[in-house]
């Protein structure tokens, strides 16, 4: 049986961020993690090829990239498709997720990937493909691969996967009716007794998440509005005075930009997730103060809020992002800001 593997430019051993724009290529051997995967599954199946694609290429040319990659998978005659693991790398995660989902859905070839629970790719893939739970960095590769190999073998042999907790994957969201060895009323009484004894218990129906924020009212008169500029692109004053982390940020920064016409020259990026050259040359390419200032001068907007807020989005936990948003939002609300322009990289 045949396996085709997908990795990015880094794990495909082509290069780092500078090669992130590389289009997909097919190599007819196991490269990088594919080699480890091959070792784990022994001779039960063979990794016949590795597809290597730059993260930026994929994310910026998604339709073309998907088409090319799907064609490669199809031509290979694979019985199983494996991508990643992407750990907490957002762009790599999105690529692994979308390719896996498409392979499963369009080619109907079982697809498997792996990533960290906060990777934004997770939601793109989990309902279609199987996504193994991994740690947040490549340091956990040795834990991730055996789980992926074990589930991969099940998928190859058409053995129904066990519960997510048994096989180490993220629940796909399928709620399957099964028989319990106890009737419902007994389970209810037992759960009640646990609650009364303040012992741990597991609900059988976690409340569904209705996580939509109602859209805020539009600004009635832009010419009187104060607009704040916020970015998760890691743009900070030269020297990074507050030592904001380049990845997995634990804090945000706030900098006085009153009277400034642009960020260019005084600001640069400390973001660890993208090629910094262009932002360092011209920080307004990430946080466009220059145009906002122009629009203010022209009277299209009333004012630019005198403080600029910034943090790094890459690898930053959802919990942290939520906390940052709450703290920043509170300040902006209290300052009477009319609207926010937030850029992400």
């Amino acid at each position: 049986m045949k396996i085709v593997y997908y990795v990015n430019q880094f794990f495909g051993q082509i290069g780092g961020e500078e090669k992130a724009g590389t289009p997909p290529q097919y190599v007819d051997k196991a490269v990088g993690p594919a080699g480890g995967f091959q070792t784990l599954i022994k001779d039960e199946a063979q990794v016949v090829g590795t597809i290597i694609c730059g993260d930026n290429y994929f994310n910026e040319h998604k339709e073309v990239a998907l088409k090319e990659i799907l064609a490669m998978v199809k031509d290979s005659g694979a019985d199983l498709f494996v991508a990643g693991p992407a750990f907490n790398a957002g762009r790599y995660g999105m690529a692994c997720a979308q390719v896996s989902a498409a392979v499963q859905k369009e080619l109907e070839i079982p697809a498997l990937t792996g990533m960290y629970e906060e990777n934004p790719g997770l939601e793109e893939a989990r309902s279609e493909a199987y996504v193994i739970k991994t740690g947040d960095s490549a340091g956990t590769m040795r834990k991730a691969l055996p789980l992926m190999a074990a589930l991969g073998l099940k998928l190859l042999k058409k053995v129904a996967p066990g519960l997510p907790s048994e096989d180490g994957y993220f629940a796909q969201g399928r709620r399957v009716t099964v028989f319990s060895d106890k009737r419902g009323s007994v389970r209810a009484v037992e759960m009640l007794l646990k609650r009364l004894a303040e012992e741990p218990f597991v609900t059988e129906l976690p409340m569904p998440v209705f996580d939509n924020v109602p859209p805020a009212q539009a600004i009635a008169d832009l010419s009187k509005a104060t607009i704040a500029l916020v970015t998760s692109g890691g743009i900070v004053p030269l020297g990074n005075p507050d030592r904001i982390q380049s990845a997995s940020a634990q804090k945000w920064g706030k900098y006085d930009i009153s009277g400034k016409k642009a960020l260019k020259g005084d600001f640069y990026t400390i973001h660890g997730g993208y090629d910094p050259v262009y932002a360092n040359a011209y920080a307004d390419r990430v946080a466009p103060l220059d145009v906002l200032y122009e629009l203010k001068e022209e009277g299209i907007i009333g004012d630019v809020y005198p403080y600029f807020y910034t943090t790094t989005g890459t690898g930053t936990s959802v919990a942290s992002s939520v906390a940052f948003g709450k703290e920043i939002g509170k300040e902006l609300k209290e300052a009477g800001v009319s609207g926010v322009l937030l850029t992400s990289t």
Binding site: L163, P164, A171, G173, R175, V176, F179, G184, V186
Partner: peptide, 22 residues
């Protein structure tokens, strides 16, 4: 659907059905 089967998903817990998340 179970909808049509008498007592299958009894909400007074008279039967044994439950749901597992896959």
């Amino acid at each position: 659907e179970l909808n049509a089967v008498i007592g299958s998903t009894s909400e007074i817990g008279y039967h044994n059905c439950t749901v597992e998340l896959y």
